[in-house]
Design a protein around this nucleic acid. Structure first.
Lengths: 343, 343
DNA sequence: CTGGGTATTCAAAGCGCTTTGAAAACCGAG
DNA sequence: CTCGGTTTTCAAAGCGCTTTGAATACCCAG
């Protein structure tokens, strides 16, 4: 059932039918009702491609996944972010499209996505320091939003981010206040912008307290469970092991816990742990009592907001750049406690 | 830059340019090269919507996420499956589209997706027992593939699944062979088809060994970490607690481990645990030595295969139904051991 | 040279929708 | 009645591509 057929059934022109269905004012109310009824009855749905062709809009938002980040798509954080975005898209009648592109041709992918008219805008996830994708998109003059920011890129662009620096600074300060001096940071991959900021926060707190950071207590890698486990196992072998640990994600924190338990240490008593909690659905930080003391910020919510901001941008390409900085909350659980003298 | 402009530059008709670019045989080789060069030079990309409109193909595969399964999109299992599918799509020049739809209008969503020409096929994930979506799609006569199967639906349809029954039967048998009698099953949501099959496997092994299953040792819910934790805490309070546990996912197994450790029990010695391992990227089951003895099957691989099967179906709508049953491997780690007499 | 086949190229129609510019229908005031 | 001004409806053009059916160019046997 297409527009032509429907309009023939109704004995009206395609113009009128189209307008009636799209809520234009210049159509008689009686006609509109009649048209709507017929459309419902015959289950008419406008062909999305034809519509897009005519309007120049695709009503699709693209998410490009670099092939390199083999885990990206799969990263639970990514998943929750996307789930949030999906919610907004559904509400605003947008669709979400994923493209897998080799890193070498990432620019090409974006260009192709837009010039082929496949999407109206894109979401850029996981920005690195000096993220090259930002200038690519910026030069193309297309609507996009960055989840995170990129140090070193001074173009104006829309972004939404959590205040990583402040939240890690606070967490570190919290540990310092509990008497800890040997604080380890189990960070995400160093090239990622968020990791950089978290480290800065951590460093800032240490320095303010007059401590010299120990490189042996600083690690960075992709935030898996194994990584958290392995790192803690290694660090416990140091002559002067940490008395507190900051983990960049709940997933790694699970590994941290495994390592501690295997070594007969009790979190909160023998060693303190703070994790960054993105509020992942499948890995909640406990129920009533948090398992981990944590810096908490819903990545799902960030996804919702990012999508909203992007859609606004699409509808008003010339508005000044927007940004949104979310503050993480520090929730105190049982994984932290006053420093304990040498075990 | 569109086809018309490009053909004007070249002094050729749109027909010829289009054919040259699409590899039709009836175009002179010299011309083809000239056209290709000009296209590259000017960065011409055919408009995907116009192309779709003309060919009737969208080159898009849809994944519909029921709103109800709040976690679905976020479910790490889902993520890995989709990552696998994405890989295949990229290879075959398909795109992947997600739609979030309220459960009440799931049928409508499918209908709309196809009748609006938005997708060429869909992947149905997380089928329940008597899954109604299958007959909806089947009646619509559109290409689709089910990840999993649905007991109670006897229409023919394409599916790919892991042999859940056999793998849980083997795992249970393995525990029985180690001398366990009190074996708990921490299963997924009962309405899910896979959970049903896993339970059947578990029951079959128990019955064959002549044991009567104890309902107190059987739980089902969404497979979160908390769920695994809570369930084990509860079961340990029984007069006659289990000596072995079967967990339906690594995520829940992490919770199981937490509960055991909190209760001072050591996996493999005091109590045996087998988990089902979908080989999630962010939650690997250890490195060299598996953390958990597990029934292992890559859900990512399943995603790749599902996508391939679906694309085949799209290209040959009248082929007989296809299916693919993957066998899970039983990998033995340190979480299982001979039964221990009352603690 | 010429005719008939083959290799190339082309103009135009069509995919299903929106939108422009014009026509028709309707209205109450004069 | 008639007329200017609203409403309401319409025919047709256009979005950018593929594809059909026809035309032209080319080639070699006769």
């Amino acid at each position: 059932m297409n527009l032509k057929q429907l309009s023939e059934i109704l004995g009206l022109s395609q113009t009128t039918v189209s307008r009636a269905l799209n809520g234009y004012p210049e159509v008689n109310e009686g006609t509109r009702i009649r048209v709507q009824a017929a459309a419902d009855k015959h289950g008419y749905r406008p062909n999305i491609r034809a519509k897009g062709l005519a309007t120049g809009r695709s009503m699709v938002i693209g998410h490009v996944i670099p092939t390199s980040s083999r885990h990206e798509m799969v990263n639970p954080i990514f998943g929750d972010f996307v789930a949030g975005a999906a919610r907004t898209y559904a509400e605003k009648n947008y669709n979400m499209m994923f493209t897998h592109a080799p890193d070498t041709s990432i620019e090409d992918s974006y260009r192709s996505l837009f010039s082929r008219g496949a999407v109206d805008g894109v979401v850029l996830q996981g920005p690195k320091v000096n993220e090259p994708r930002i200038s690519v998109l910026s030069n193309m003059g297309v609507p996009f939003i960055v989840h995170g920011r990129s140090t070193g890129v001074d173009l104006p662009y829309d972004w939404i981010d959590v205040n990583n620096q402040r939240s890690f600074e606070r967490a570190t300060q919290f540990l310092i206040d509990l008497g800890h001096r040997r604080i380890a940071l189990i960070n995400g991959l160093e090239e990622m912008d968020f990791a950089q900021r978290r480290r800065n926060g951590y460093m800032a707190a240490l320095q303010r307290a007059g401590f010299t950071p120990d490189p042996a207590l600083l690690r960075s890698a992709e935030m898996t469970e194994i990584y958290g486990y392995q790192t803690v196992c290694d660090m416990l072998k140091l002559d002067d092991p940490p008395t507190a640990i900051l983990a960049s994600s709940i997933i790694s924190a699970v590994g941290v816990r495994r390592a501690l338990e295997e070594n007969g240490l009790k979190m909160g008593r023998d060693i303190s742990v703070i994790a960054h909690d993105d509020e992942l659905s499948y890995m909640r930080n406990g129920q009533d009592v948090p398992i981990f003391t944590a810096t908490r910020s819903s990545v799902r919510r960030a996804g919702e907001l990012a999508a909203e901001m992007l859609i606004e941008r699409i509808n008003a390409p010339d508005d000044p750049p927007k940004s949104c900085l979310l503050e993480a909350e520090l929730v105190v659980g049982n994984s932290t406690g006053p420093v304990r003298q040498r075990l």
